[in-house]
Simulated scan of single mutants.
Amino acid sequence: MTDDLREITGGKLARLYTFEVAARRASFAEAASELALTPSAVSHRISQLENELGIKLFTRGHRRIELTREGERMYAAMSSSLEFLNREVQSIKNQEYAGRLAVYCRPSFAQSWLTPKIADFLDKYPLIELVIYTGNEAIDLQKMGADLAISFDAAKPERFHQEYLMDESIVPVCSPHYAERYSLYRQPENLANCRLLHDRQAWSTYSGDDEWKLWATHFGLDIGSTLATEFDQAQLAVTAATHHAGVAMGRKKLLSQKLASGELILPFPQHELRCEQHYYISTHADKRWPKIEAFIAWLKETAAAGGDKISAAHRQ
């Protein structure tokens, strides 16, 4: 801060803020509306500030104002300073286990794993205002306005700080009724008579029936002529399977509750394929605030707790 600005105290600080709003709006009338003042009051404050600083900030025309060269420099300095102050205030607020925490993840992960467990986190940290966004785009925390993201990929996302969360495996799932109808229990060759349900965006924008092909190739099965229905979200394929529409390729950890309840079963429990993809946590390296650390710790504890345990009765 310069010696000149050190002399600006008390009500004079309000005049600096009035200048910032007027410059940003390029209008005394619009600045007055934002500040709940009259246009003449805004003009008076600017005139006072110009006299105090000995600098002409605006050229005034009929119904319009323009920043002078000196005014432009002042506005750039003010904008930079206010932005810095806002970041510092936000950082100070985020030193506590309170306030907004934005999390981005895949729709299937949010619906099947995160949301059913989130009450435990909210009970532990009631002052954290959790916001959950979902989508299938590449991770970009700035663009998404997120503090943290959870992805499912074969490689750690680039650009951000990454941590491993948990692994995953794929296995066919269907309703007990469907398994009985097509005699599927421990007889994967009978898939030839079934309808396969595909997630077209399993790990890319369009992965088609890649999950099923990968699984079938690994276990030496031929599913080339099998009927199929495709969805753009894994959860839709799972919902269809729950309602007896066919056999879906499920991610086992995401389906732990449905498997435990018996809504879905594993007709071929020995045919489980470990994915090369893993779940990763991405954060800003320089914004590891306590509430973010708390959420990451909770994610890891929850994953390590083995929430995907399935009772033997439902394995058939």
Rank of each mutant, 00 (worst) to 15 (best):
T2I: 05
S27I: 00
L127K: 13
K93I: 04
K252G: 03
T283S: 09
V247M: 00
G307Y: 10
D3E: 11
V103W: 01
T239R: 06
F268P: 04
V21W: 02
S183P: 04
E129Y: 00
A146P: 03
L122Y: 00
E96Y: 09
E158M: 10
C174M: 05
G99M: 02
K291R: 15
Q162M: 11
A36G: 12
T9Y: 00
F152V: 01
Q90V: 02
K213A: 13
L127E: 12
L127T: 09
I223T: 08
G71Q: 11
Q235A: 13
L214C: 12
A22N: 04
M144L: 15
T239P: 00
R200D: 09
H44W: 14
Y133K: 10
E276G: 03
S207F: 10
L122C: 10
A77R: 12
V103A: 02
L5I: 06
A102M: 07
I150L: 12
A241H: 08
T115G: 00
R45W: 10
E20L: 11
E52I: 14
Q48D: 14
E272D: 11
D120L: 12
A31R: 03
Y97L: 15
E293G: 00
P39Y: 10
I223H: 02
H271W: 13
R315E: 04
F160Y: 15
A138D: 06
I139E: 06
P188N: 03
N51M: 14
T242L: 06
A138M: 07
Q90S: 10
A29P: 00
E276Q: 05
L266Q: 12
L37G: 09
L35K: 03
E50R: 12
S204N: 07
E293H: 02
R24T: 14
Q201W: 03
D3P: 14
M144T: 08
L184Q: 05
L255F: 10
E7R: 08
P107Q: 02
D147Y: 05
A29D: 03
M78V: 12
R63W: 09
I150P: 04
L85C: 11
I8Y: 04
A179R: 05
R181L: 15
L37D: 09
A202S: 07
T205S: 13
D120G: 08
R60G: 00
A216E: 05
K156F: 00
T242A: 13
L114H: 07
R200C: 05
L299A: 07
W289M: 08
V103I: 12
Q270I: 08
D308W: 13
G262F: 01
F121W: 11
